[in-house]
Amino acid sequence: MISRGERLANYLILTAFAAFALFPIVTILSAALGPNDSPGFAGSGPLDNFAAAWEIGRFGSYLRASLAVSSFVVVVSVVLSILSGYAFGTMRFPGQAALFYLFLLGIMMPSEAIAVPLYFDLRSLGLTDTFWSIALPQVAMSVAFGTFWMRAYFRTSSRAIVEAARIDGASTWRILWQVLVPPARPAIVTLTVLVFMWTWNEFLIPLIMVTSESLRTAPLGLAFFQGQYTAGFTLLAAGSVIVATPVVIFYLFLQRHFIRGLLQGAVRE
């Protein structure tokens, strides 16, 4: 049905486009793995570049901060989203629609709009430059999407099983954790990887809230490193690879979750 020429043209287009998508990534990778271009650098192997970036760019400290913030935001916002999604998805209560639209607002709300007032209010409370000032605003943003996401899932879950459990005398708490959550694992994994990615990659909130170096997250650290370190590109490239790698590894293993999540309603990023 399809001629050979057409097939060849299709593969050419695909290859050209894949090359375009990979080109900046390859630029970074080859610079990070290539010979070091900074003056007076002694190392030789490719891993030496990463070791040097780790040392000079202090990426160890940045990754630690990112890991702490991401773990906290992921755990707290996923649990809170399960609870609120459960209420919206399976129960009926006064003000339900209005409250749900209030949560929907948060999905599209640009963090630029809330970050400025938040900074000045937290500053007057002496809370800027703390772990909480980076983590809690991101929990709020993730909970908006998470509520929407878990509600959509719980709406499709079988009412019959819930009814049966209720007749057996199970409390709403037990129905949630023992009946509804176990089969919800795929939806929860999707939510988890999305929130992890958003939090790990977030730039504006840490940029505004944090001044001390021990709280700098990985993207923020990279931006600072780029501003200060001008002796060549190799270490900057190595640092970029260090910052991007955790999410990329997750993506390679849980690709379906990333694609599904981002296509099915992530209006956040």
Binding site: F17, A18, A21, L22, I25, I28, M197, W200, N201, F203, A218, P219, L220, L222, A223, S240, V243, A244, V247, V248, F250, Y251, Q255, F258, I259, L262
Partner: peptide, 12 residues
């Protein structure tokens, strides 16, 4: 491959 850019931090 074409979806990969979406998961790389914008700073990178």
């Amino acid at each position: 491959v074409v979806f990969l850019p979406q998961v790389v931090a914008m700073v990178v």
